[in-house]
Amino acid sequence: MSAPPAVAWAGADPYAAALRAGRGPLFLRRADGWLLPLEVERWCARADRIDRTVLDRCEGAVLDIGCGPGRLVAELAARGATVLGVDVSAAAVDHTVGLGGQALRRSVFEPLPGEGRWDTALLMDGNVGIGGDPAALLRRVAQLLRPGGVLIAETAPADIDERVRVQVVDLSDGPAGNGGCFPWARLGTPALLRCARGWRRAGQWTAGGRSFLALRTLSHSNSAEPPKSTAVISSQRVRKPSAARPVADR
């Protein structure tokens, strides 16, 4: 699958600045001026009680898609799990690596280590909106997981299905605190289930005002190849991005 156009989120200076500072305020803004607050402080803190209950449901090797500053990667690594975070933001990858986690600066739509072998994928903190096309994102995640693998996604608490263009804004800096526009989506659990063709529901729950959905890929493979072994990332050299080559390779 080809990678989408450059993601404006990755180059949004207010987002990078907020991650480095560990605080907001930061928002996603639609063209009509509507604002969605981004929970930068929570993302930059340690995994909380609700996060940990979600991570308790993870199986085997875990791929955290849109890992942000890496609290979930760090928590899973501390548990001894095989885990890799991927994010398009250099600041997010740097923060994750600084916590002792493994992370790559890469889009989920680009080639990734262990394709077809991950046991669990995470789409937390609104990351079901990545790319603005949830059905395409779910198809991509299915390619990354092993047959029978599980996706745990955090959904919007309301029954919403919204596809929009947004930008990251820091209102305290005026126009200078705005990033470029990019496609995004917001989905509640019913809307995500409507997109989940080829998946079966494995769990649905709410905790602390947050909503989650677990989906499992079909246990059979459409390929004639034998099942692949579990994803292994320990042999991969993960390093911080450089100007010449922003991502590590296998």
Rank of each mutant, 00 (worst) to 15 (best):
V40H: 04
L193P: 04
R201L: 07
D87F: 11
D133M: 06
S234P: 04
A45G: 14
W199F: 14
F182A: 06
P241Y: 01
P5K: 13
G179V: 13
E162S: 13
P69T: 11
G131E: 04
R52A: 10
Y15V: 07
A121H: 03
F212P: 03
T217Y: 07
A176L: 13
A156C: 08
L19W: 07
Q167H: 14
V247T: 15
D161F: 05
A18G: 11
R210P: 06
V86K: 02
S211I: 03
A8S: 15
G116C: 12
P157L: 12
D161R: 15
S107F: 09
R163N: 07
R140M: 15
K240Y: 06
I50L: 05
T96R: 08
F212I: 07
R216L: 00
V97G: 03
G98H: 08
L55M: 08
E59T: 10
V232W: 06
L104D: 01
S223K: 12
A17I: 00
D51G: 06
G22N: 05
S235N: 15
R57E: 10
Q236N: 04
G68V: 09
I152S: 00
W199A: 06
A91K: 11
Q167R: 15
R79E: 08
V7N: 15
L19I: 15
R52Y: 00
L171C: 10
D13V: 13
P5T: 09
L218I: 11
V169C: 14
R194P: 01
G68E: 04
P226R: 08
L26Q: 12
T189N: 08
R186L: 09
F212N: 09
V164Y: 01
T53K: 10
C44W: 07
D32C: 05
V83W: 02
A92I: 02
R79M: 05
A176H: 02
D159E: 14
R200P: 06
A77N: 04
R140P: 04
L26M: 12
L99Y: 06
D13Y: 10
P147M: 13
C195G: 00
D32N: 11
G60D: 08
E75Q: 06
P37S: 01
G208I: 09
D56Y: 11
W9M: 12
T53V: 09
P25W: 06
T53P: 00
L84N: 14
F27G: 00
A243G: 02
Y15H: 10
D249V: 15
A12S: 15
G129F: 03
V141W: 01
A47S: 08
E59P: 01
R20H: 01
R139F: 00
A21E: 15
V168G: 01
S2F: 09
A176R: 13
Q204F: 03
S89E: 10
N222L: 14
R163S: 13
G179E: 06
W118S: 02
W199Y: 10
P113C: 11
E162T: 11
V93P: 08
A214G: 08
P4N: 03
D159M: 00
